[in-house]
């Protein structure tokens, strides 16, 4: 399998697909590449993961349309699990996948060493936020690094100057209070080890740990009301700040900054929610490529709570 990106000749629209139906509508709506979670191994948990059979069918559908498919393996496997997962990656390569998304420096380095032609993306869970992070993950073997849509065009421009690595921006995402990849508030409250069936009892998913992934994962404790206590007195009831980022109207600046891949968050989005989002970004990218102004598109006024409750 050859690496399919050098510096991207044109912007790539990378859409989530948490089910075969979601994959179908994402491709119909104009995604260049879709990313799917392999059951048991993706950040975000069982909701939005594909079985091996579903993955095979979805891969065939994508390739039949000349599109690409990446597989999210962005939990952090333990030592015993890692051997198994590295073996699964070899199977996936044999199936013809177009890349993997990983979350751990150790796994990334091992995959790059074993499978030097495998396209590897440093997941949003790597919490890369600056150009030095981009260079670090490139050095480990990442072909692309995902940056959050919270970064400015100037920051993206600086990141895009790092040679020999593609810049992906999660342009449509929920910005939670805690930086993605730097949170273990849920597991502070509850952590449930759960056997991972694929490993025949030899491995566990730790429900409650976003980093460990697996079924259930994050309890979203940050999205419930908190009482703020100041010097022993309860002074406010509040939510921790979060917001939906949909930077479609800043797309020209983002692409002008040299961003290669426009990534959309939401493997748990239902097909009816996903299709219009992908279509909207497709039209905006096409307009930018055509040299004309990107149409001012009215984003849905999504409150984070609305989006979160449905993703």
């Amino acid at each position: 399998m050859a690496r399919f990106f050098s510096r991207a000749a044109r912007p790539i629209l990378l859409a989530p697909a948490g089910s075969p139906d979601a994959a179908k509508v994402a491709l119909q709506a104009g995604a260049d590449t879709i990313y799917v979670g392999l059951k048991g191994w993706s950040r975000g948990g069982a909701k939005g993961e594909l079985t091996s059979e579903e993955l095979l069918d979805t891969l065939a559908a994508a390739h039949a349309q000349g599109r690409k498919l990446q597989v999210a393996l962005n939990t952090i496997p333990r030592r015993s699990e890692r051997r198994y997962l590295v073996g699964r990656v070899e199977e996936l390569i044999g199936l013809g996948i177009d890349g993997v998304i990983v979350n751990d420096a150790g796994l990334m380095a091992e995959l790059h060493t074993r499978y030097p032609e495998l396209r590897i993306t440093a997941s949003i869970g790597c919490a890369a936020m600056n150009e030095a992070d981009v260079a670090f993950y490139r050095d480990l073997g990442a072909d692309a690094v995902v940056l959050p849509g919270t970064l400015s065009a100037d920051e993206l421009y600086a990141a895009a100057q790092v040679p020999e690595v593609l810049i992906e921006v999660m342009i449509h995402m929920v910005e939670e209070f805690i930086v993605l990849g730097k949170c273990w508030m849920p597991s502070y409250y509850r952590l449930n080890p759960t056997p991972l069936a694929e490993l025949h009892g030899e491995g566990n998913r730790l429900i409650g740990s976003m980093k460990r992934g697996g079924a259930g994962v994050c309890f979203k404790v940050c999205e419930h009301p908190w009482v703020l206590s100041l010097n022993g007195q309860d002074v406010a009831q509040r939510l921790l700040p979060s917001r939906q980022i949909s930077s479609i109207n800043a797309l020209s600046d983002i692409l002008d900054a040299g961003v290669d891949v426009v990534k959309l968050q939401g493997r748990s989005l239902s097909p009816d929610l996903l299709a219009p989002i992908v279509g909207r970004y497709r039209r905006a990218i096409d307009a930018w490529e055509g040299g004309g102004p990107v149409p001012a598109l009215q984003e849905l006024p999504l409150e984070p709570s609305w989006t979160v409750s449905r993703r």
Binding site: I76, R78, R79, R82, D104, A105, G106, L140, L206, S209
Partner: peptide, 22 residues
């Protein structure tokens, strides 16, 4: 989180590691 991750960071000069709190 893992020995593999620690091994990588050792190559970048790490001489001591506070593992993730989880």
């Amino acid at each position: 989180y893992t020995d593999a991750g620690a091994e990588v960071l050792k190559q970048f000069g790490a001489v001591r590691i506070t593992p993730n709190y989880e």
